[in-house]
């Protein structure tokens, strides 16, 4: 886990390693009265192994929040907990709750299908469906019962424009989406995620399968759509986090370690472990 021996003692990380409960370091500026997402003491188990340990976090409305942390620390798990995709995995158990605009995500009466329609998700690997480009983009609307051709076409154009893909594909909307390049496919997935106007956009390492140019385009894109949507993005790329996000959360072994404005987290972190992680000396 360590690439260079730590020079200082790590208060929080050492406690986490020892299995003790420690409060995360949350910057004052990261607190908000009007969060889009509130994670309340949320824990998750895959069978016997625990992937999240009572995570508490509030996501700011209309901002881009990045989640960073070493591999296997539970970033994807946290993201997939928001739209309950983990329900699909056998043997998953949860505790605590997440509130999406005040309404609980977990709980007995929740309609998971409706919940997922309020969120948009983009995965690490582009996953277009085996259908035409247009049908891919309007898929969330179609499964919601929208059948009017005109509405669908307009929505497709809007979403593709938002995803900076319209000019490239406007002449081949009827062709299979599987024929697009990797970067185009990922932008298509972003278009699909925003077409139904989600309350939060969940991005799980959206650029990890892309070359630098495509990555840059996606980052620009995140900038543009950030004005309209709340974005929660998982990334391994520290530069990317500084470039696109307003807030950054640092996770370690299933726990939140430090959470604050991106500038503060990267330039004057409260914890030495965070500083070592973001500068690449630890993790």
């Amino acid at each position: 886990m360590t690439i260079s021996t730590p020079q200082r003692g790590y208060r929080v990380v050492d406690a986490i390693r020892a299995g003790e409960a420690v409060a995360p370091e949350v910057h004052k500026a990261a607190r908000t009265d009007d969060p889009v997402l509130e994670v309340h003491g949320f824990s998750l188990w895959y069978g016997k192994s625990r992937a999240l340990h009572a995570v508490d976090m509030a996501v700011h409305r209309g901002k881009v929040t990045a989640i960073v942390g070493p591999s296997g620390c539970g970033k994807s798990t946290l993201l997939r907990s928001v739209n309950r995709l983990n329900d699909l995995v056998d043997g998953v158990r949860t505790d605590g709750d997440i509130l999406l605009n005040g309404s609980p995500v977990y709980g007995s009466g929740v309609d998971v299908i409706t919940l997922r329609k309020r969120l948009g998700m983009v995965f690490q690997k582009p996953n277009p469906f085996p259908m035409s480009i247009r049908d891919n983009v309007v898929y969330p609307l179609v499964i919601d019962g929208e059948r009017r051709r005109k509405v669908l076409n307009e929505a497709a154009e809007r979403a593709l424009t938002a995803a900076a893909l319209w000019d490239e594909v406007k002449d081949r909307l009827r062709e299979s989406a599987l024929g697009l390049s990797g970067g185009q496919q990922q932008r298509l997935c972003i278009a699909r995620a925003v077409v139904a106007d989600p309350e939060v956009l969940l991005l799980d390492e959206p650029c990890s399968a892309l070359d630098p140019v495509a990555t840059l385009r996606i980052e620009e894109l995140i900038h543009q759509i950030a004005s309209r949507y709340t974005v929660l993005i998982v990334t391994h790329n520290m530069q990317q986090a500084t470039r696109v996000s307003d807030f950054t959360a640092f996770m370690y072994l299933g726990r939140l370690v430090e959470y604050g404005p991106t500038a503060a987290v990267f330039q004057s972190p409260h914890l030495p472990e965070t500083e070592d992680y973001v500068t690449g000396r630890f993790g």
């Binding site: 995709l85 998700m121 995965f123 996953n127 499964i143 997935c189 699909r192 139904a196």
Partner: peptide, 13 residues
């Protein structure tokens, strides 16, 4: 699996 998850992620049954 990623295709199915994408679909569920869109709110499909």
């Amino acid at each position: 699996r990623s295709m199915r998850e994408g679909s569920y992620g869109c709110g499909a049954t």
